[in-house]
Design a protein around this nucleic acid. Structure first.
Lengths: 227, 227
DNA sequence: AGACAATGCGAGTCATAGCTCGCAAATTTA
DNA sequence: TAAATTTGCGAGCTATGACTCGCATTGTCT
């Protein structure tokens, strides 16, 4: 007798296995990428490193691009998570303190796996799905914009869109440059870097009294523990 | 009688021909790169586009990397030229005006061949000689640092090295982002962008009296060295 | 247990790209 | 003009890497 169609959704046990294999493959991809670079990261090598056959790899990812794109997505998710958390914590701080913590979060985000991050930035071609490497900033933009909107009163910049773009781009670039290419400058001194960048941004968003005629009259400098 | 060694330096006519061929090859490389992207830019295709044989190509460039590296060098030279000129013109201006003109020069530099610039940024892997893609900033750093040193009196930042790095990185990233990824934001409005960025930088270098926001820096460690 | 589906395997296929090498054309020297 | 040398050519060699496909193993259901 013909049984019910066996093409039924997979068992949860199997689903867990699949999930595990995907994770294993992504981990292997990350390892091979950081150790060998993008050019030498062939799908064969990745599969071998994962202790899996190429065939299996192609059961879970249709092509190499999809594999790398999935890794990029995972990495970006991890970085964004830190920023999201920071934005939550910072919601009620005054602007300067908040920006400081956000910059700190940006640094932490770049330290999540800086070696891998460098490979993404320097070697992975931004084509097709991989164009999403920069899309990190897309999401970041929206989150930061929402925050700045909340703090609108403390900001003396007319166009919030441009302002957000400028701040996000500047902080991202500076954090990237110092974490990836000048790590020695941060060694014992991370706070100094954070302070400088914070000053750059806060000075831009809320220019000093007198520079912008009587817009920001009351300067309430709530102390750090403002929560 | 044995003649003088024929391995004598080439004739000037021939040298011109060689020079011309090199230029032709670089032009073809640029065209293929922007039209097809880095992956599809095979040496065969480049040679064909140049109206030259692959063999000839390899007489002038030992490998593909060298070819692309030469193109990158040429492009960077063109961009740097604009900045150098701007720095000369600006030597006697006051800080704010000077920075404005320098930012304008940065925008112009990115417009030299923005399509090619994008390919370099997004697709050409930074490996071996090609690592020099970012080296543009190296030279820029020195030139800008020298200028800031001249204007030391107008600048209230302690460490000039950090300050230069921050300014150069920020301006480069912002210019790049807006020219390459948000050109519509500059269309009729280039001056507005330039003004914003200038304000960002000038406000950082020469913060208004009393407006220096207190930077919230928990666990701040006193230290002297550069960032 | 037995049968059938799902998952895993990896040697092998196919395509492409970097690069070479022997010959031809052009240019120079005497 | 004839020999010598440089420059240009492009078919083809070699290596490599993305991806496939038929078989083996594992797992599930009755």
């Amino acid at each position: 007798m013909a049984r019910a169609i066996p093409t039924t959704p997979r068992k949860s046990a199997t689903q867990k296995r699949s999930q595990a294999m995907v994770e294993t493959l992504l981990d292997a991809t990350a390892r091979v990428l950081t150790r060998e670079g993008y050019d030498r990261a062939s799908t064969n090598r990745i599969a071998a490193t994962a202790g899996v056959s190429v065939g299996s790899l192609y059961q879970y990812f249709p092509n190499k691009e999809a594999l790398v794109a999935a890794l990029v997505a995972r990495h970006n998710r991890q970085m964004l998570e830190l920023l999201r958390d920071a934005l939550k914590e910072v919601a009620s701080f005054d602007l300067a303190t908040a920006i400081g913590e956000l910059v700190r979060a940006a640094v932490d985000a770049h330290l999540v796996d800086s070696a891998l991050h460098r490979i993404f930035a320097e070697q992975v071609p931004r084509l097709g799905q991989l164009a999403k490497i920069d899309a990190l900033q897309q999401e970041t933009f929206l989150m930061v914009r929402a925050y700045l909107e909340e703090r609108r009163a403390e900001i003396s910049v007319p166009d919030l869109d441009s302002a957000t773009a400028i701040c996000v781009t500047a902080v991202e670039a500076l954090t990237h440059e110092f974490v990836i290419n000048r790590p020695e400058a941060l060694d014992g001194d991370r706070d100094r870097f954070i302070g400088e960048v914070t000053r750059l941004i806060v000075g831009y968003l809320r220019p000093a009294d007198g520079a912008t005629p009587r817009v920001a009259a009351p300067r309430r400098r709530a102390r750090t523990g403002g929560l």
